[in-house]
């Protein structure tokens, strides 16, 4: 039933990409610029195949994704329980909130100088920065998600005899699910960006490092390969992972509406 419109919308979404590639293809014949500034489509394609065959791309992407996954898990394991606890308890909120707002201002890449001094260049420093970036969106979304649960539902569950832990499991986590998913999605996007940025500045491997390293020998083709890979990977995660989770949870429960 939805097969045709789905295909249509996928094709519509592809149009800007096709247009961009076309412009890129004809650019050299319209403008004049040195070849190293913007290689042709086929040159980038050739470089992509090269990087794939010699395993460099897989190694870099693998290192980056592994680091991102670790930082994403660690960041959310701190952010979500803390956010939930804070939303459920006024005293915890009064203690934690000021420090959270203070830290938010310097979240992410602003920690790079300290991270280098503490952990040296490389993996640990990069992971530290990414955890920091991942944290805040999940933290704030967890808080507002829990606070958006209608008071009457709290009353209903408590008058069925639920203990605090049962309230969390039966009400708080599913009730805040829309916002928790939004938080996870945003935090992964921010984490991905922070990761690439951190690898560019203080990394010793990974996709960001691969791109930065390529500047030493004017490897514009490698850099563009990197940009495309970063974007495509994110598109895939967003479309297939998060959309699928949403479909099977909050959408099925009638908690979000398509407009």
């Amino acid at each position: 039933m939805t097969g045709r419109p789905k295909l249509q919308s996928a094709l519509l979404g592809l149009t800007p990409f096709v247009a961009l590639v076309l412009i890129w293809q004809v650019a050299p014949s319209v403008f004049s610029y040195p070849a190293y500034m913007l290689p042709t489509v086929s040159e980038v394609g050739r470089r992509f195949i090269e990087l794939t065959l010699n395993g460099e791309l897989a190694r870099s992407v693998g290192a980056s994704l592994l680091r991102l996954a670790a930082a994403f898990v660690v960041g959310n394991l701190i952010a979500i329980p803390l956010g939930v606890l804070l939303a459920m308890n006024a005293r915890v909120s009064r203690i934690v909130m000021p420090v959270a707002v203070f830290l938010q201002a310097v979240a992410g890449i602003a920690w790079a100088p300290l991270a280098v001094l503490w952990f040296g260049l490389g993996n640990t420093a990069v992971t530290f920065l990414v955890v920091n970036s991942v944290f805040f969106s999940s933290f704030y979304n967890a808080i507002s998600g829990v606070r958006s649960i209608p008071p009457v539902l709290w009353r209903a569950v408590r008058s069925l005899g639920a203990s605090p832990w049962q309230v969390v499991r039966e009400l708080v986590l599913p009730g805040a699910m829309v916002q928790l998913l939004l938080g996870l999605r945003t935090s992964l996007a921010l984490g991905w960006r922070a990761l690439v940025a951190a690898e560019l500045i203080i990394g010793t491997n990974g996709i960001g490092f691969l791109m930065m390293d390529a500047t030493k020998w004017y490897g514009t083709d490698t850099i563009i390969c990197g940009i495309v890979v970063i974007g495509v990977l994110w598109l895939a995660v967003d479309r297939f992972v998060f959309a699928a989770i949403e479909r099977n949870t909050v959408r099925r429960w009638g908690m979000v509406n398509d407009n």
Binding site: P150, V152, L153, R155, A156, V157, E170, L171, P174, G175, M177, T249, V250, W253, G254, M255
Partner: peptide
């Protein structure tokens, strides 16, 4: 409750 208070999930 007047608002039913069923859990949507």
């Amino acid at each position: 409750f007047q608002e039913y208070a069923l859990l949507p999930w």
